[in-house]
Structure formats: structure tokens, C-alpha cells
Write a protein that binds this DNA or RNA. Structure first.
Length: 432
RNA sequence: UCCCCGGUAGCUCAAUGGUAGAGCACCCGGCUGUUAACCGGGUUGUUGUAGGUUCGAGCCCUACCCGGGGAGCCA
């Protein structure tokens, strides 16, 4: 007897196979049970006729409520009317466990608070299933993309001695006799690695203790940060464009079922093709100045509503570059053509989702970087190792940070980032 | 930290200041083609907490707790 998974049923039409899973839903009609079986890879309807299976199994299934664990063996039949296109005509099987009464997540509607409180069970539902499988695919596509271009994955530490950028509020943790902080960015370490390996990326969790409470914020989220030696702002923008196009392409090619579960408008994804529009910060300011709903003041950073206005001008991500140096991080290199600007870029996702990537060319001159650190009143001692990178073989280098959850939410067309990470951590939620 | 909204059965919600309800879930019975099945029957409450106003509070007032949406900041 072949044990297989639901997503591979197409290879087994006409054969008898065994599926191992859980009862997603069951309806019975007299001497007939319809079991919607979930096995993690998909969902398929299994039909049990009373006369075709042993009485013990038929009786057990009649008592098997939602989420009971069952093992069913039967003939795989093509069934165009069934979701997924297949149906199992069950001949034998076993009920491993009758789920306890009171499985909280019913087929009816639930509020977000209730669902998050039961996230450990909610993961089994269709929507999280689709989203988290796409998240996985996006992570794989990203890794494959960088791997195929000769990037080395270099992990950055999660315990850090200080603020990487000196801005965000960090989580403080006891570290033996002193204090450590959870990383808010692996970038400074990625720079060190780029000067060692040429092209690198870090990919891991990052932490921000800011009391943000919006659909775009988590206190723990994943960030991918590529960094390239002998590269500038234009290289970074090209890399970001190629990367996003590749990710969307892979998801469109391999996750149609999941996108259908999410009722994603595929035309919005199919529009994600190169080239992405590019505009300077000043050009973006002009767009906002001409927009009646914008309260943006030229020179300031863009607020969330401003980003929405800008990104809604296009059907694909837009790259806004050369922001005022004053509102950006100390390590960003000044634009030689206009020293009030820096060589930075923000990529705003389409459909008004806001910033998904922030990147820049880094300041490679020791004296200029040191003056920026002093001007920002950052702890100079902590940055000595970072300054070493400018002392010994400094080169032009550049990179960016991609917010994984924001990217997944954008691709999935999901409103809130808390749905695109398995166990979201927000200001008021650390459970389960 | 600030602004707005909410908290009633396991869930989603209703209830003019006057006897706390419905649908679903769950349990029992029926049905060989269901798709959120259907039909019949049954179980379900410290109305977030503590005060106050009132003859009477789920409803009005005060404080607090919890959560949601947004701002700022950012990915």
C-alpha cells in the first residue's frame, strides 16, 4: 500500500493509496460519510460507503469530529467537480484519535483576537495554510535567487552590544554581568562580511521594541539583508527589482492553489514586471504636493498615507531614491551631485502596501563616517570595529533590507503582517 | 505616548433604562452525493472588573483591565 500526500494525488489516479491526516470537516448522509481530509499538503474529499468498509471503521468515522486524526486507504479517482480535482473512494482505514469535544475553530466566522489566541490551532485552517506555504516559497525563492548569483549567506548575531543604527528602541536582555540587546538589523555585520566574501546576505529574525500598533508592524520579524562590495546605489536598485520579480514569478508558477484560497487577484501579481518606476525623493515630493489629500512637508520623511499615495500611482513597486541625508541613517553615503541628499532607496510595494525594502550605498570614507557618528552622538567606542572596515581596504559597497512579512503580505494580498508569520509577536501579544 | 472603536452563551452577534435572545458549534434521531448539507429534538450566561446614579442598569456616569484600528517610528 502506497502512503502518499494529497498534493501528489495526480500521480496516483486509478491506484489505491493511504493518506494520513485530520478531519477538516465531515458530513454524513445515512449510510454515507463525506470526510474532507486535511494532511498539510492539501485537502481532499474521501467518501465512505457503509457497504464498502468494515462496520468498525464506518462507526468510528461517524464519531470523528473536526480535527480527529485518521488514516484512510482508498482508490484515487479523478473528480472534476471536487476542489482539487480528486476524490478518494475509501476501502479501509483507521481512526487514530477522536478529537476531544470543543475544537474552538469552527467553520463559522471568528474575530481576530480569538483566532490569534488560538494560533496553535488556527494554523490548521485554510487561510493560514495558504499564507504560510507561500511564505515558505518566498523564503526559498529568495535564498535560491541569491545563491544563483553567487551570494554567501552569512548569519549575523542576534545578541548585540549596542544599537546598530542608534535609533530604534531595542529589547534589552541580561547578558551575564552586563546587558545585551536583540538585533534590530544585521546590516553592519553584513558589511563586514561583504568585505570578506564579496556578495553576502543575512536572513533572520530582528526585533524592535517600538510600541507600533499597525498592520505593518511586529516586534519580531524577519529581514533579509544583501550586501555587495564594489557596488553602488544603481546596483542595489537593479538587484531589488530582479529579486522581487523572481519571487513573484516563482509564487505565480508554484502556488496557484494557495493564491486561489486567498482569492488573490492574479492580474495584480502578473503586472509585477521590470522595469520598476524610479523617482527621486524630490519628484515624489512634487507628486504629494499636487495631491489634495497629502499633508506632506518637503524635506520630511514620508508618512504611511504619503507612501500609499505614491505607490498608488503605479501597478508595480516604485523605487524612491536620494532622500535628504538628514532624515536617514548615519551610514548612508552622500550623493556627490547634491550633498544634502544620500544615496538611499526605498521600495514601496504596489497596491498601497508601503515600504518593503530600504537600502543604500554605504559611506566608505573613514573621516566622513566618523563625523557622522559624532554628529549623531553615537557611542564611538562601539563602532571601532565598523570603522576598521573603512581603514583596511575600504571600497564602495551597498545593500538593502527586505522586510519578509511585508513582502509576504504584499504578495498574498493580506492586509495585516500578523497573519503572515506563524506566531506573531506584537506589543500586546506574546501568547501562544 | 496620543487619537478612535469595542468587551453579552464555546464562536459571531442582537436586546428603547423594565422577564438576557438568535444563528452556528456540540449531543440524540433520520437520510447513498454532501460542499457553511438538510429535517426533527436537546444542552448553553458572574453581560471585562470595581464603584456610582436609579424603584429598576447589558444599556447612563467614573475609574481601571483587556483587546482592535490608526498616528509617530520603521521593515
Amino acid at each position: 500500500m502506497t502512503v502518499t500526500t494529497i498534493e501528489k494525488l495526480a500521480e496516483h489516479v486509478g491506484q489505491t493509496v493511504t493518506l494520513q491526516g485530520w478531519v477538516h470537516a465531515r458530513t454524513s448522509k445515512g449510510k454515507l460519510h463525506f470526510v474532507q481530509l486535511r494532511d498539510g499538503s492539501g485537502l481532499v474529499q474521501c467518501v465512505l460507503f457503509k457497504n464498502n468498509v468494515e462496520a468498525e471503521l464506518f462507526d468510528a468515522v461517524s464519531r470523528a469530529g473536526q480535527e480527529s486524526s485518521v488514516l484512510l486507504t482508498g482508490l484515487v479517482k479523478a473528480e472534476p467537480r471536487a476542489p482539487g480535482g480528486f476524490e478518494i473512494d475509501v476501502s479501509s482505514g483507521a481512526v487514530f484519535q477522536i478529537a476531544a469535544e470543543g475544537y474552538p475553530i469552527t467553520p463559522k466566522e471568528h474575530g481576530i483576537d480569538f483566532l490569534l489566541e488560538h494560533r496553535h490551532l488556527w494554523l490548521r485552517s485554510r487561510r493560514p495554510w495558504a499564507i504560510l506555504r507561500i511564505r515558505h516559497t518566498i523564503m526559498m525563492a529568495l535564498r535560491n535567487f541569491f545563491d544563483s548569483r553567487g551570494f554567501i549567506c552569512v548569519d549575523s548575531p542576534i545578541f548585540t552590544p549596542n544599537a546598530c543604527e542608534g535609533t530604534s528602541t531595542l529589547f534589552e536582555v541580561p547578558y551575564f554581568d552586563s546587558t545585551a540587546y536583540l538585533t534590530q538589523s544585521g546590516q553592519l555585520y553584513a558589511e563586514a562580511a561583504a568585505l570578506a566574501f564579496g556578495k553576502v546576505y543575512t536572513f533572520g529574525p530582528t526585533f524592535r521594541a517600538e510600541k507600533s500598533k499597525t498592520r505593518r508592524h511586529l516586534t519580531e520579524f524577519w529581514m533579509l539583508e544583501p550586501e555587495m562590495a564594489y557596488a553602488g546605489l544603481d546596483d542595489v536598485m537593479q538587484l531589488a527589482e530582479d529579486m522581487l520579480c523572481h519571487v513573484v514569478d516563482v509564487v505565480l508558477k508554484t502556488r496557484r492553489t494557495e493564491l486561489a484560497v486567498l482569492e488573490r487577484d492574479l492580474s495584480k501579481l502578473e503586472a509585477i514586471k521590470p522595469p520598476f518606476p524610479r523617482m527621486t525623493y524630490d519628484e515624489a515630493c512634487a507628486v504629494l504636493a499636487a495631491h489634495p489629500e497629502s499633508k506632506h512637508v518637503a524635506g520630511d520623511d514620508f508618512g504611511a498615507p504619503d507612501e500609499t499615495i505614491i505607490s498608488n500611482q503605479f501597478d508595480r513597486p516604485v523605487m524612491v531614491h536620494r532622500y535628504p541625508a538628514a532624515i536617514k541613517a548615519f551610514y548612508m553615503k552622500r550623493d556627490p551631485a547634491d550633498p544634502t541628499k544620500c544615496l538611499s532607496v526605498d521600495v514601496l510595494g504596489s497596491e498601497g502596501v508601503g515600504e518593503i525594502i530600504g537600502g543604500s550605498q554605504r559611506e566608505d570614507d573613514l573621516e566622513l563616517l566618523l563625523s557622522r557618528i559624532r554628529h549623531e552622538k553615537l557611542p564611538e567606542d562601539f563602532f571601532q570595529w565598523y570603522l576598521d572596515l573603512r581603514r583596511y581596504g575600504s571600497v564602495p559597497h551597498a545593500g538593502f533590507g527586505l522586510g519578509l512579512e511585508r513582502t509576504v503580505a504584499w504578495v498574498c494580498g493580506v492586509e495585516h503582517v500578523r497573519e503572515v508569520i506563524p506566531f506573531p509577536r506584537t506589543i500586546y501579544r506574546i501568547h501562544p
